[in-house]
Design a protein around this nucleic acid. Structure first.
Length: 596
RNA sequence: GGGGGCGUGGUGAAGUCUGGAGUUCACGCCGGCCUGUCAAGCCGGAGAUCGCGAGUUCAAAUCUCGUCGUCCCCGCCA
């Protein structure tokens, strides 16, 4: 088979200038229009659609063949490219001024009746789409997303290559580290009972590349985290991973902004304004109640604690006594019914608040609220002033521990104020993250990861709860696109961080000894970042979830509806790996097999 | 692990609240007509275990319980 025998031109590129030439095109039957006396076939290839015309008087055999064509048949067409007759130009088609007068048609491959139509007019059930993803990819939406993904990654590569970065591949069978997300494990046949882990990120290997003198590294890295799915989370995802020696935060930001700008230019045709604004973690939490603020809209948090210092209202005074805060948002004119307002209270509780106080400003400027009767006139007045509240506004107030109050209001703010879609793009760097966060059981965990440099090592040891690190996130329209940090580059500091995390010397040696050793051989100070490629492309393509920009994604339960992966394996395979299924697991598998 | 939405010919929806014959709409599919359409048009036709299983009832797509699948959210995601 030779492409020249199947086609000499691409469908989407045919123009008026080409009229008069003989062309051969190949592709798929998008539609067939049979007018009895004349037949039209819209032929689609990756570049677009061109109209093929079959005249039964000139080519009765071709007309007969065309009657047998069905949607998505793969065909090759030979013919004369000609200008369309007066009045039949299709302005909606790039090739709308021309058409091919067919002299020969070859069916390369027939198509069975389709499970769904190849167009964007209907929202087909996603499981169905994934089951026939190869057909789904022929739809304009998915074809556009694949193209966007390729262009984005190309923009990243070319920008970084021009900037002197080395692309290096790191292993995807690595050592498991119990910290952080759950690992995907891969059993070792040669060392039964031992397991590789799929990498959650190339973090430690890229740091070793800094030790190895690479200085500027990047990789389009596949990462794996065995955690529950979300619209912006798959267990398998792709990051742009970069790292630079002798770098600090400023160099990382300065290196990434051109990369992000090139991607935005490639996908949106826009020129981003750089540098992107910076905001500290503390400021983001106080103003927006989240570490990933969507700064496309205001509705900022208003703190009211001091206005209620002498309040009679028990819910508020109790919060103040226990060290909490009172804050709220002015959600504007929501026009919600009582049931709608109660729905917000439920949502607040779902988010972890003990309750939610709502107030609606009436036409006469009085505040309607279930708790209004517990508040003094001064307090009600203060509320109106702090919120700059006008008639019709809905005010939402939470009184709780500071972290709870802020996160609940931050989530409500997004629920109520976030614009649909992503026409506007607002990038933001969030900086000065804490080194640690306090887990529910009171233990410390690395807020970013334990290789992040604390701003001050002594401070980190003395007051770990409030210590600030040299970590930063990139946020776009309220989505965390990625994060990075200045790294620890000496084994002493690294050991002290592990110690504060409560990891014993023996554990440090057994789990990270190999890494600690590497830090002892002239490690340059270094810093880096990882950008979630699926996320940035999804937002730039204005898609509601990352599955739409991943060629072959999985469902929320980790299933691939096409291949039915994950699936059971044969006993001999398990034996070779030294793995025995627990009896109840085996039984469940057998029951399931029987049911089918 | 928890909460919520959804599941009806090949596809998308309406019908479910308030039980009464598998009813309806659009697309697709099959057949016919048609010489300029381009989401072609017109005529005709086929196609359903209302996700699955129990229960209530004279009667269940509809009510109840369970279960499976899926999506969204909380937890989780160093």
């Amino acid at each position: 088979m030779d492409e020249a025998t199947l086609r000499t031109a691409r469908a989407g590129g045919l123009r008026r200038d080409d009229v008069g030439t003989e062309v051969r095109v190949a592709g798929w039957v998008a539609t067939r229009r049979d007018h009895g006396g004349v037949l039209f076939v819209d032929l689609r290839d990756a570049t677009g659609i061109v109209q093929v015309v079959i005249n039964p008087e000139e080519h009765p055999d071709l007309a007969d063949l065309t009657h047998t064509l069905r949607d998505e048949f793969c065909i090759s067409v030979l013919g004369q490219l000609r200008a369309r007759p007066e009045g039949t130009v299709n302005p909606d088609l790039n090739t709308g001024e021309v058409e091919i007068g067919a002299t020969d048609i070859t069916v390369l491959s027939a198509a069975a009746p389709l499970p769904f139509q190849i167009d964007d007019r209907v929202d087909v059930d996603e499981v169905r789409r994934l089951e026939f993803r190869y057909l789904d990819l022929r739809r304009p939406r998915m074809a556009a997303n694949l193209l966007a993904r390729s262009r984005a990654i190309h923009a990243m590569r070319s920008t970084l290559a021009d900037d002197g970065f080395l692309e290096v591949e790191t292993p995807t069978l690595v050592k498991s580290t119990p910290e952080g997300a759950r690992d995907f494990l891969v059993p070792s046949r040669l060392r039964q009972g031992s397991f590789y882990a799929l990498p959650q990120s190339p973090q430690l290997f890229k740091q070793l590349l800094m030790v190895g003198g690479v200085e500027r590294y990047y990789q389009i890295a596949r990462c794996y985290r065995d955690e529950d799915f979300r619209s912006d989370r798959q267990v398998e995802f792709t990051q742009l991973d970069i790292e630079g020696a002798f770098w600090g935060q400023d160099q990382v930001l300065a290196a990434l902004e051109p990369v992000i700008s090139a991607v935005a230019k490639a996908l949106r045709g826009v020129d981003l304004e750089t540098p992107f604004p910076l905001m500290s973690y503390a400021e983001a939490m106080a103003r927006y109640g989240t570490d990933k603020p969507d700064i496309r809209f205001d509705m900022e948090l208003v703190e009211l604690t001091d206005a209620f210092s002498a309040t009679e209202f028990k819910a508020f005074s109790g919060t103040i006594d226990s060290g909490g805060i009172i804050a709220g948002i002015n959600a504007g004119a929501l026009g919600l019914s009582r049931a709608g307002l109660d729905g917000l209270v439920d949502r607040a509780k779902d988010l972890g608040a003990k309750g939610l106080v709502w107030m609606v400003v009436e036409e006469d400027e009085t505040l309607r609220s279930p708790v209004a009767k517990f508040l003094s006139a001064d307090e009600l007045q203060a509320i109106k002033e702090r919120f700059a509240a006008g008639a019709g506004d809905t005010l939402l107030i939470v009184a709780d521990a500071a972290a709870v109050t802020r996160s609940v209001l931050g989530a409500l703010r997004v629920d109520l104020g976030q614009p649909d879609g992503h026409e506007e793009l607002r990038f933001l760097w969030v900086t000065d993250f804490p080194v640690f966060e306090v887990a529910a059981d009171g233990r410390l965990a690395a807020a970013h990861h334990p290789f992040t440099a604390p701003a001050d090592v002594a401070e980190m040891e003395e007051s770990p709860q409030t210590a600030v690190s040299r970590a930063y996130d990139l946020v776009l329209n309220g989505t965390e696109l990625g994060s990075g940090s200045e790294r620890i580059h000496d084994s002493d500091t690294q050991g002290r961080v592990f110690k504060v995390l409560g990891i014993s010397d023996e554990e440090i040696e057994s789990r990270f000894g190999w890494f600690m050793r590497a830090l002892q051989y002239g490690t340059p100070p270094h810093a880096g970042f990882a950008v979630g490629i699926d996320r940035i492309i999804a937002i730039l393509q204005d898609e509601p979830n990352i599955r739409e920009v991943i060629p072959f994604p999985k469902t929320q339960t980790g299933l691939d509806p096409m291949t039915q992966s994950p699936g059971p394996v044969d006993d001999p395979q398990l034996q070779e790996l030294g793995i025995d299924l627990r009896p109840e697991v085996r039984r469940a598998l057998e029951d399931e097999a029987e049911a089918e």
